[in-house]
Design a protein around this nucleic acid. Structure first.
Ligand SMILES: [Mn+2]
Ligand SMILES: [Mn+2]
Ligand SMILES: [Mn+2]
Ligand SMILES: [Mn+2]
Lengths: 221, 221
DNA sequence: ATATAATGTTAGACTAATCTAATAAATTAA
DNA sequence: TTAATTTATTAGATTAGTCTAACATTATAT
């Protein structure tokens, strides 16, 4: 087990690499809100621990060991979030910050029990897959709501952002995971979208918001 | 809020001061398993933050501010322990180490919710009083089982030690908080004690163990 | 009352994690 | 293909928390 700081680097490298595969020192510095030389020296340390592969001026890549560590932390984060919602009755908009702390708790027993109480869940409150204890997670299509065309229908499966301000916004528009929606209108000018909910209510979303909502277009009725 | 390290110093100072009022640098060093100069410099820092009062070669005393901080941490520790037992179904012998980590979680919401789910409990799974959000806790008599005489009866109200090995020992002897017991025999030679449980079963305890069991002698029928 | 033991302090060094300033390499644009 | 820009590295400093070695103070025991 590394330090809390190391864990946060590993988690961020994993998150950034999901898109591209490789991560640059500058990206990581931006994400972690530290300066470049700070990241540079931490990366050297993680490289010496065989958690990342790194050669100067090349990108950073997690090793298998690094990936395993990352998935372990992500597993704890997501289990914690679901536990906070399902067992403790907190809102999906307020659990991320607490999970940022709980993900560093070192106790197999604690997390095994959470997993058990939740009946080995596959997804967190934001629709993100929860890695199992071997790091395997269920696949999911991640189509952005902003990529749908007028007339199309879909089910909200996840959100690409855990921040309170974003989720408060969705709460205000009464959008939740699992909701069936259809696209009434898509503005060419600014990409904003008008949806119809199952309740027949109409909601307008800016492109910024829509692109962070992930949907499944299978008519899973 | 101080750092995790500072919080651990504050908690230990509080614990040690419960008996004596004043705490010596050496005691604290022993408890925290660090060397004297380490404590010396940390104490200077805590003094500059007005968390302790300290003059060289005198004892360390928590200020009001320090006491408030200490009680806040103890509150979180004990709420966490009870939550782990009552809501998560863990054993009283395995919760202390997890609570050592959870006590540093910084989230009013998390702890308010635990408090609420447990219905504002007064005591933790080891019988220790839980400070309320103002730092007030219920008084309790703390008579040690080793101070009772032959023939006396009492109810186990608390244990003076949270460690797994000790609690595993009590589990093996089937002793629990709330159990009514009576003293059958007290050996003068080594202070060991033989008890009778309500189930009529007899158990022998060494002095070492008996002195860590706290009882209430009121014949609370 | 002095020696011995126990306890506490100071000085100086180390590691982890951070920073700023200076420099170097790689990329992009003119 | 040189210049400008972006990106990364090195050097050196800082803070938190720890250590060892040397010294100082206080308490205790002849
Ligand atoms: Mn999250
Ligand atoms: Mn999430
Ligand atoms: Mn405890
Ligand atoms: Mn306890």
């Amino acid at each position: 087990m590394g330090s809390l700081t190391e864990e946060n680097y590993i988690k961020s490298i994993y998150a950034l690499s999901q898109a591209t595969g490789e991560v640059f020192v500058s990206e990581l510095a931006r994400k972690l809100e530290v300066k470049l030389p700070t990241v540079n020296s931490m990366i050297k340390k993680l490289a010496s621990k065989k958690i990342v592969a790194y050669a100067p001026y090349q990108g950073i890549k997690l090793t298998e060991k690094g990936k395993r560590e990352a998935l372990g932390i992500i597993r704890k984060h997501r289990l914690a979030e679901l536990f906070l919602v399902k067992v403790m009755g907190l809102g999906w908009e307020e659990v991320h910050d607490i999970a940022e702390q709980l993900e560093h708790v070192n106790s197999t027993r604690f997390y095994a029990r959470i997993d058990e109480l939740l009946n080995y869940p596959g997804f967190d409150p934001h629709g993100e897959p929860i890695p199992d204890s071997n790091g395997k997670m269920q696949l999911q299509k991640r189509t952005s709501l902003s990529d749908l065309d007028e007339g199309e229908a879909a089910t909200i499966t996840a959100v690409a952002n855990d921040e309170k301000t974003f989720l408060d916004h969705l709460n205000a528009k009464s959008l939740q995971i699992g909701d069936r929606i259809s696209i009434l209108k898509k503005e060419l000018f600014d990409g904003s979208i008008t949806l119809q909910l199952k309740s027949k209510k109409e909601v307008m979303l800016t492109h910024q918001v829509a692109e962070r909502i992930l949907v499944d277009t299978l008519n899973s009725k």
